[in-house]
């Protein structure tokens, strides 16, 4: 400004540096303050305490007969609980790993010591549709497991991807057997 240019005080180089440092420090502190103030707002979008507390589900599996499957809800998503037949178990166990896009042995996917129980998250790993194959009326795809109608992914009796666009096997959730007939997912 013209009216100030005239009486710009004659700060020496030293005064200049001190002033610049002050501006920088105050500005920096202000920026830190704004960033810190943004954090609680961003964090408020993360799952709330009550949402996290409901992160486990208990299921009674006594009534699921061999060959049958039920769908339960866990964290708002469907979970497939299938009581596999001996035939299905054998099929899953005998599949050579080199035929699998996402190689995983069946023993690592079914319940430990209880191979008849297969529990997987019923969400196709392609784009999140729910595969068919739970009810007798639905197709189980070419590998006897599940078939995703959205883009044609086929899963086998271990919930592993065999053909189609899905990149990964159906996710296995953490499962604890509370008794022989009752499980906790999560």
């Amino acid at each position: 400004m013209a009216q100030h240019g005239g009486h710009q005080p004659n700060h020496g180089a030293e005064g200049e540096t001190r002033r610049d440092f002050l501006y920088l420090a105050a500005g920096g502190m202000g920026a830190v303050g704004v960033a810190a103030a943004a954090w609680p707002f961003l964090r408020s979008w993360s799952p709330a305490a009550d949402t996290l507390a409901l992160a486990s589900t208990e299921v009674d599996i006594a009534s699921i007969r061999e060959g049958q499957a039920v769908t339960v809800t866990w964290r708002g998503k469907p979970v497939f609980v299938r009581h596999r037949t001996a035939d299905e178990i054998k099929q899953a166990a005998d599949t050579p790993l080199n035929q699998l896009p996402d190689p995983q042995p069946d023993a690592r996917r079914s319940a430990a010591g209880k191979p008849q129980w297969l529990i997987v998250v019923g969400v196709c790993t392609h784009l999140g549709c729910v595969p068919q194959g739970q009810r007798p009326s639905e197709t189980r795809g070419e590998f006897g497991g599940w078939f995703c109608p959205c883009h044609g992914s086929h899963y086998d009796t271990s919930g592993r991807i065999r053909r189609g666009p899905a990149p990964k096997n159906l996710e296995v959730p953490p499962v604890t057997f509370l008794t022989d007939t009752s499980i906790r997912i999560g």
Partner: peptide, 25 residues
């Protein structure tokens, strides 16, 4: 507003949920 429910049955509890459950609510 992202956590509030404008309904006479839920409004009070949704505000308390903001106070107790939502992160930094």
């Amino acid at each position: 507003a992202m956590n509030y429910t404008a309904h006479t049955d839920y409004a009070f509890n949704s505000v308390e949920r903001i106070m107790r459950e939502v992160n930094y609510g």
